[in-house]
Design a protein around this nucleic acid. Structure first.
Lengths: 223, 223, 223, 223
DNA sequence: AATGAATGAGAGTTCATTCAT
DNA sequence: TATGAATGAACTCTCATTCAT
């Protein structure tokens, strides 16, 4: 679970009050993910957090409020990713930037599999405002990927193609690691999965005259 | 909505009882899709079906029972698709079979967008047995795609690659048309979407020496 | 308790469904009056009505809804009174009309002592719309009394005076029988109370040259 | 708000503790009046007092306890009035004493409109003992008025009539300024209201042969 | 004296399901 | 078949009060 940093001055130190807050979010997150938002009762969250309902409402104004905090946590990570991707693009080339960005996003999905899964199931239970925020995050992420892809097209390393669509394909193939885990886990480790998918994506968009390099790179890696 | 054919002998004849049955499923399906399973009340389903709760319980033993029937409806379609794919493969080559199978699956998703979306949201509310059935359908579909892909690898038209993964990627990129419609509808018609994705998939797996053909085919189409 | 007439065709016949409705209103009214609206729980109302909470919510959409029905019941009576007063005024003179109207209003208060008392305590717990309706009823009643008083002033039977204020004084002196019953019941029967107050009011507003008549009338009555 | 004088010896000196006490009563009174006793939460009282709940419970043992103190404050005023009335009666005549006492009582109601209103709404939430105390105060006040009225009857200035009832009528017509303010404020200033009511009351009870004096007095005033 | 986190019983309300008619 | 009144457990949320710090 993500550690939110509301503490003002303290570094590497969590106040007991904050720990309660996180303790509840942690428990609630786990329950939401395993049972769904609606089927999880406030009493269960309280019990799982080792407190009583009254105390829970001391920290959160409503069941929905807990959800909002979980959401905030994850959207922070996306913002980070978007920023990093931008930097990598200007430093290394588009190919490397794309590889890194994909791998980074897939890692996030891997780390927050449950929550990713949860969004796919329970988006409809968020307040409209929060739903929009989530979609907005997603579009931002898509645009970040698109910028890398466009850079590659311009440099000639990528074929001319619909970069908007590819960007969203990448996101979905990442999320898939979470929502198809019942199948994928039987056949792949996360590392294998990420590598395979990255290769497939690059294979789809890399210009023919660069294909050899792609294949060579793959050979090196598996050596 | 799908029309279930439970009547064995009767042809072109629907009993009033059956019509009630379908009427309820239709109404329930629409409500489940728009509000989610848990947020839909039995009373609402009854009202939307133009009957009373008591009557509803004459046709279905529980709220969950209604869900099961909806599920059966859709899984029929998948079985059909799997069978057709097999036939096409033996008649035309793997490339053509893949194009057709993908297009067919994407069409199903397009026709049942709401239900596809619904499965992504509410799978968790199905009885375990029904959940497994759904996953099983999915694996069957994946295997159907895999057989086509393997055939293409063997014929040399497709690169050697992880066909299992690609098969599932195809399914997910199809479902995506439903669960990302909030975004995709803004940029693509269904026809555009299907064409673009098919090209991208083929571009990713087609052997280099066949790439020209792929490009030519695309050129023809847009001409 | 007042019998509301929602039944469409039936005359002098109460359907069992309606009886439930009234049964609940009756029980709720008694509880609201004795404990106050806020301190009365829905569970108590149900228990007092001999049903369960679920059933109660079958007949009323909320606790507040029950209150609304109680209110409707009483405001019907006021409308009646206002109409009757008008008729009496045109038939008999203002003095007689005033006597009758006062006596009528006092009787209503006497019959619905508890509810009158309840309004004084719990007006603040009504929805704003219902509060306004109640005040509106009160103004209508005030205006009815005022019309009689004005007629008397014009005919010379009553002194020139602020009839608006007197009208409201009359209403308040009526309500007083409910909200001061802890004291008044110790000293007066309802009949005594009504007679005394009517005399006092007439004594305050009757023109001097008619005073003798008033006194004579009183003498007759007590004879 | 009323300033309680609990400090026995100290003169012109308020201890900080006492100021807290009053501060809370002030805030609580305002809230009770505007929202009602039950709908006001202890947390709100604390916040409005600029302290925390814990601190509040250092000064008052319970929510109910706060109410008791508010009550005491007002009943002091009644005792004062009763005493003054007695003195005026012995100095001036009954007519003048009545005029003064009424005006005095009406002034108190005007000053403490909110609290008067509050008693009408929330008497039921007082502890039985406090309720009785309140009723007792009211009876004392009634008796004070009655003594003046009786004196007037004996002197011949007032008609023979039921002085007990009139005494209570006076109180109610005073309170009415508070609980009917939604209407009265639209038509009268406090001064007008008091004058009109006093005239009406005197007009009702003054002996005919004194009526002229009453009218003359009124004429003088409006001149 | 002052805090505010913790309590837990109890509030109003919902809803899948049953069953006598 | 068809009805819809009846059920009651379970839901989210509130709040007066306590008590360790």
């Amino acid at each position: 679970m993500v550690t939110r940093t509301r503490n003002k001055d303290e570094v590497g130190y969590t106040r007991p009050a904050d720990s309660r807050h996180e303790q509840i979010i942690k428990a609630a997150g786990a329950l939401f993910v395993s049972k769904g938002y609606l089927k999880t009762t406030v009493r269960e969250i309280a019990r799982a957090s080792g407190i009583t309902v009254g105390t829970l409402y001391h920290y959160f104004s409503s069941k929905d409020d807990i959800l909002s905090f979980i959401q905030e946590d994850t959207s922070d990570f996306i913002s980070n990713l978007v920023q990093e991707a931008e930097e990598t693009l200007s430093q290394s080339g588009p190919v490397e930037a794309l590889r890194l960005a994909i791998r980074k996003y897939f890692s996030i999905v891997n780390d927050f599999q449950d929550i990713t899964l949860f969004w796919y199931h329970d988006t409809g239970n968020l307040q409209p405002a929060h739903q929009e925020h989530l979609l907005h995050c997603d579009e931002l992420l898509g645009e970040a990927f698109k910028r890398i892809l466009d850079a590659g097209c311009q440099s000639g390393e990528f074929k001319q193609h619909d970069t908007t669509l590819t960007a969203h394909d990448i996101i979905v193939l990442g999320d898939m690691w979470a929502f198809r885990r019942w199948f994928l886990r039987k056949h792949y480790t996360f590392a294998q999965y990420a590598t395979e998918q990255i290769d497939l994506i690059l294979s789809a968009i890399t210009n023919n005259r660069f294909q050899r390099q792609v294949l060579e790179r793959r050979a090196e890696k598996t050596r």
